[in-house]
Simulated scan of single mutants.
Amino acid sequence: MKFVVCGEALVDLVPETQCSTFASTWQAQSAGGPMNTAIALARLGENVEFCGRISRDDFGRQIAEHLADNHVGAAHLVRTDDPTSLAVVSLDEQGKASYAFHFSGTSNFGWGAEELTAPAEGSWLHVASLALVVPPSNQVLLEWARNHRGPMSIDVNVRPTVIPDRQEYWRRIQPWFEVLGEHAGVLKASDEDLVFLARGAGMEPDPLEAARRWSDQFGFSLAVTTLGPDGAVAQRTGQPDITVPGERIELADTIGAGDTFMGAFLRAHANDPADLAGSLQEAVVASALVCERHGAQPPTGAELSDRLRR
């Protein structure tokens, strides 16, 4: 299976040691949820292209080199003179990450229809995160995805700091649910994402009930919900839920956890769609591995296989 992953690539500014009240030290890490998923797929041995707008500035060159170093294809990349988007990362005492985004006028969200090339027919299109909801190009990407001929998935990856209004967030996500249903695609979300969107849609904040209801309403083939340290659940219309528990780990941080989960799940599910429990297990373990490391550093196929054996 060939994958095309579309969305933002940016730089995470991750704090290091506080040096003084005048100066502090930060790591500028290549990041962005969709890019992390593309990296995860490539490290697991899949044929993957990243579809994104990347700046020609120094940060953009870093991102482009990171993609190339991980053997992610560049056929759908667009280089721009707009600056690179930034995310300032805060880590709580448990290592859970939160983000403050700076992307007004930056490269990620300025897509024009003429810049987008159709993925090869039959390839798997995955669209994720802020690209789904940030104007002006979210509508351009929506129409582009609507015309895709092949399997499709989305990861909603809700960012309330970008759009705090739940109803407005739901208004922007709902058309993507409609397109995903047209493709009988795969929805991936966290339990927190679903609670936020359910409240925006005027529903009870029960994440699994929301996922099942939307799957039935829009026609998804599958809804996958991550539960943080408690694992993940897969739901299909008319069938019982499939649940896989989480892994016990020494947490470094959660940066890239959901994105790595998505990459590992897509790889396993595309190769063996009948084994949902096995796909969930691989994704949960891959996510656990990245949580044991600092930053979004998805495992290789050999690392994942070794962990699964153990």
Rank of each mutant, 00 (worst) to 15 (best):
A100D: 13
S153G: 09
V284L: 10
N36K: 04
E143Y: 09
A277V: 00
W170C: 01
R293D: 09
E93H: 15
V88L: 15
L304K: 04
V78E: 00
A211W: 00
F103E: 07
V179I: 13
R61I: 04
E93T: 14
P207I: 03
F22T: 10
R146N: 01
L41N: 05
F177R: 02
F101P: 03
P273G: 06
L308W: 12
T243A: 14
P273N: 08
E121C: 09
L187Q: 03
E65R: 15
K96C: 12
E204D: 13
L194Y: 02
S104N: 13
A75V: 12
Q167K: 15
V224N: 00
T243R: 13
L10W: 07
I63G: 07
A131L: 11
L77R: 09
T80L: 10
S153F: 07
A75K: 13
F22H: 12
G7Y: 01
R172H: 11
R79I: 05
V134G: 03
V5K: 00
W144T: 06
A288W: 02
R53N: 04
D165P: 11
R199T: 10
G200S: 10
S221P: 03
A257M: 07
V290K: 01
S279R: 06
P205Y: 09
N271S: 15
D193Y: 09
G95N: 11
P136E: 12
L142R: 14
Q94K: 15
F177L: 15
V285K: 02
A68H: 15
G45Q: 12
L44Q: 07
F261A: 00
R172V: 07
H183M: 08
R146Y: 02
V156P: 00
C51A: 15
G60T: 02
S215P: 00
R159C: 05
V127I: 15
H148T: 13
H269W: 14
A302S: 14
I63C: 07
T106F: 01
D58S: 14
I242E: 11
R267T: 03
A283N: 06
G105I: 10
M262T: 11
S123D: 11
E192D: 15
P136D: 12
A257H: 08
F177I: 01
F59A: 07
G112R: 15
G122Q: 08
N138P: 04
G258Q: 06
C51G: 05
D230I: 00
E282H: 14
L304P: 00
S137Y: 06
D216N: 12
V11S: 03
